[in-house]
């Protein structure tokens, strides 16, 4: 027998031992992203502490400029405190997004795994994805709302529906590539069963683009919720969201520009932060 080649195989030092996601999160890009997203999320979570007024309470003084009468950001056309509406709006948004995107991602992945089992299932699932993708996001939103009526639920359903094919396609592409790789063939030759091969061997190797996609999808979801609320088919007033605050501010844009500034700024920060995060993850996992 050959002698033991080396007691300690050459272990590469440094980042090799660290998980690439962790490495990605320590880059400057990701740190800025984390701070931005973290600040917005924190503002939403701490809404009851940070605001002195109830989001729906009317003070009787409409459209006061920022800083007057205890209203830090002023009031809206119905005399409601803009800061409270903004903070609670973030809350609503985050609740919807944090629920809808992961559900969409999980369902999408589940369908992709299903599609990987048999070519016939693959065709069925693919055509179903095509069907969903054939509708532009907003048409889908209007259609769903027409059935379910306005509210939180249709927003969640629409975002979920929109995300399923996105994740499904992404994972399916990954599986098709990984399935032909030598290690997958080796596992098959080693006797590993199909389900185990798919979930324990192939799925972890497809995870990178999915994680990046998750960050991208959160960004898209912020827009989608905003657009639905803006069109009035989303969360019902008087409950505040970023989107309906914006639509409410639109008629007063020349008169009271500060009205629209808050929601616009928050959406910008959130999207910017998530984009930076997804970009950082993408760069690190592509290495």
């Amino acid at each position: 027998m050959t002698s033991t080649v080396s007691s300690a195989p050459a272990v590469r030092r440094g980042t090799a031992a660290r998980h690439p996601y962790l490495a990605a999160l320590t880059t400057t890009r990701a740190r800025i992203g984390l701070v931005l997203v973290g600040a917005v999320v924190l503002a939403g979570l701490l809404a009851p502490l940070l605001s002195s007024h109830a989001p729906t309470a009317q003070s009787g003084r409409a459209l006061v400029p920022p800083g007057t009468g205890g209203h830090l950001l002023g009031t809206d056309d119905l005399g409601r405190d803009l800061l409270s509406r903004l903070l609670y709006g973030i809350r609503t948004d985050l609740e919807v997004i944090a629920l809808a995107v992961p559900i969409g991602a999980l369902l999408g992945c589940a369908f992709a795994l299903l599609a990987a089992v048999h070519p016939v299932l693959d065709t069925v699932v693919q055509r179903a994805f095509d069907l969903v993708l054939a509708f532009p996001g907003l048409i889908l939103a209007l259609a769903v709302t027409a059935i379910l009526g306005p509210g939180r639920l249709p927003v969640i359903v629409v975002i979920t529906l929109a995300e399923i094919p996105v994740f499904g396609r992404q994972l399916r592409a990954g599986i098709l590539v990984q399935r032909e790789r030598d290690y997958a063939v080796a596992a098959r030759v080693g006797g590993t069963r199909r389900a185990r091969l798919l979930i324990r061997h192939i799925l972890p190797n497809c995870a990178d683009p999915l994680v990046v996609q998750l960050a991208v999808s959160l960004t898209v979801a912020v827009f989608l919720e905003g657009a639905m609320s803006f069109l009035g088919v989303g969360v019902r007033p008087p409950e505040p969201t970023l989107g309906n605050s914006l639509s409410q501010a639109l008629p007063y844009l020349s008169q009271a520009p500060y009205f629209a500034a808050g929601p616009l700024l928050i959406v910008t920060l959130l999207v910017l932060g998530l984009s930076l995060l997804s970009e950082a993850l993408n760069r690190e996992t592509r290495r």
Binding site: M1, V5, A8, P9, A10, V11, A16
Partner: peptide, 17 residues
């Protein structure tokens, strides 16, 4: 049997030549 140290079991492929 293949001439590696049993402690190699805990490392991922990229740590090896």
């Amino acid at each position: 049997q293949v001439g590696l140290d049993p402690s190699a079991a805990d490392r991922r492929p990229r740590a090896f030549s």
